[in-house]
């Protein structure tokens, strides 16, 4: 194998390793979430408890469904519709991002505080 091909292989392997490391860092045991925070254009649009089933029309841009403690996007006026194909989220820190709609749906919680004095 020529030098270039070898370095190609090393490059690909490093990218995969970095991705794996980031994946680990991001997925560190997330606790069950308690609420869904929806952000539109960088501002908080609303926060909704995960244990109340409901559908939320987010500014006409997309519709978020909360059902059985999980949140998902059921319809979107954005072109790609990637956010609709995202799997439902339920654990603290999990996120669905709709780039064209500038909407972020994030599960918050795992308890506001761990103890009080």
């Amino acid at each position: 194998m020529k030098g270039n091909a070898k370095r190609d292989l090393i490059l690909v392997a490093s990218v995969v390793l970095v991705a794996a490391a980031l994946f680990c860092a991001f997925r560190v045991s997330r606790g069950e979430g308690t609420a869904v925070e929806i952000t539109v254009d960088g501002k908080v649009y609303g926060t909704y408890p995960l244990d109340d089933d409901r559908e939320i029309d987010v500014d006409g841009r997309l519709v978020v469904s909360i059902k059985d403690g999980r949140a998902s996007v059921v319809s979107s006026s954005c072109r790609g519709g990637d956010c609709v194909r995202e799997r439902a989220i339920s654990r603290a820190g999990e996120t669905i991002v709709c780039l064209p709609g500038a909407v972020i749906i994030r599960v918050t919680g795992g308890g506001e505080v761990d103890a009080r004095v």
């Binding site: 560190v28 997330r30 603290a92 506001e112 761990d114 103890a115 009080r116 004095v117």
Partner: peptide
């Protein structure tokens, strides 16, 4: 872990996603 004896809170280590958080009433 967090060991809370009725408002007497001992915090050890961290949570996987950051520091333990203690609210002051």
């Amino acid at each position: 872990f967090v060991l809370d004896l009725g408002g007497n809170v001992l915090v050890s280590g961290k949570k996987p996603d950051g520091d333990w958080v203690v609210g002051v009433t």
